[in-house]
């Protein structure tokens, strides 16, 4: 790991000014991706601004029909939240399937969302549930946030403060995990909520995307059978040593059917 300067921010304002005065500063949340990348010298920031010392960035609360999760809330805390289990159980369950127990104790929702790994679980939840990402500058709809592989709408120095999830009528997430890494080979989050039926796919391509043909079919009839005969175009998906694009396309249909079945208790 290359040398860097470490700063523990005492407030969001303090973090913003530390980032602004750094050459090539990066925000440090749980560090479960960033520290590993720095060890491999894939990332070499001049400064790290640690948000761990800002307590108001952690926690889950309800605001009307929306569940708000602070950016520094760990996957374990999301998984264990009774409020979430009562309102969006699919989201709590998703958090309990990320990485392994130790990664979940340290990794955060804000870090995962800002990193936008093409096989991460959370982006599928944000897109399907029509979440809103709040930063210290503005709010961004999930539809506009995930712009490409490891790319987001965040500007340099912009920090995620919290993420708001409208409570859906029903939702479920099903993934086919890579047996070694536990990352989603394909993961599908299905939600029937205030914005209608939305189906978001992770792991299959260069970034999370919505399966709009699936959404139309499910809007007519919310049942696994409604997806019979529907597929996604394999030519736009990823193929690698773990799975071919054609296999991933097949898995999208299978995971989507299972998710619909799960969310309807079928």
């Amino acid at each position: 790991m290359y040398e860097f300067a470490y700063h523990r921010a005492t407030s969001l304002e303090n973090a913003a000014s530390l980032l602004a005065s750094a050459d090539d500063g990066r925000v440090l949340a749980g560090g479960q991706t960033l520290v590993a990348a720095m060890k491999l010298r894939l990332a070499a920031p001049s400064d790290l601004v640690d948000l761990r010392g800002i307590p108001e960035l952690s926690g889950v609360c309800r605001d009307g029909d929306t569940m708000i999760i602070g950016a520094m809330t760990t996957h374990s805390a999301v998984n264990a939240s009774d409020d979430l289990k009562a309102t969006i159980p699919a989201l709590a369950e998703l958090a309990g399937g990320i990485g392994d127990a130790m990664v979940r104790n340290q990794g955060t929702i804000g870090g995962s969302v800002a990193n936008n790994d093409p096989a991460a679980d959370y982006p599928a939840a944000l897109l399907a549930l029509g979440a809103t990402i709040r930063t210290e500058r503005r709010t961004i709809a999930a539809d506009d946030f995930f712009t490409g592989m490891y790319e987001t709408a965040l500007e340099p120095g912009e920090m995620i403060v919290s993420i708001g999830f409208p409570i859906p009528k029903r939702a479920a997430y099903v993934k086919f995990p890579n047996p070694a890494s536990r990352y989603a080979l394909v993961g599908v989050f299905v939600a029937d909520g205030p914005a209608g039926v939305r189906v978001a796919v992770t792991g299959a391509g260069s970034g999370v995307f919505r399966a709009t043909a699936f959404e139309s079919a499910l809007s007519g009839r919310f049942a696994p059978e409604a997806l019979d005969g529907l597929t996604v175009d394999a030519s736009e998906l990823s193929g690698d040593m773990h799975a071919s694009a054609e296999y991933r396309a097949h898995l999208v249909g299978v995971m989507a059917r299972r998710a619909v079945g799960k969310s309807t208790g079928a």
Binding site: Y6, R8, L28, G31, Q32, V35, A36, K39, L48, D50, R52, S76, A101, M102, V103, N105, Q106
Partner: peptide, 12 residues
């Protein structure tokens, strides 16, 4: 809580 100490900076 259990964490992997090879993936945490001491300063954290």
């Amino acid at each position: 809580r259990a964490v992997k100490s090879c993936n945490v900076l001491a300063v954290q």
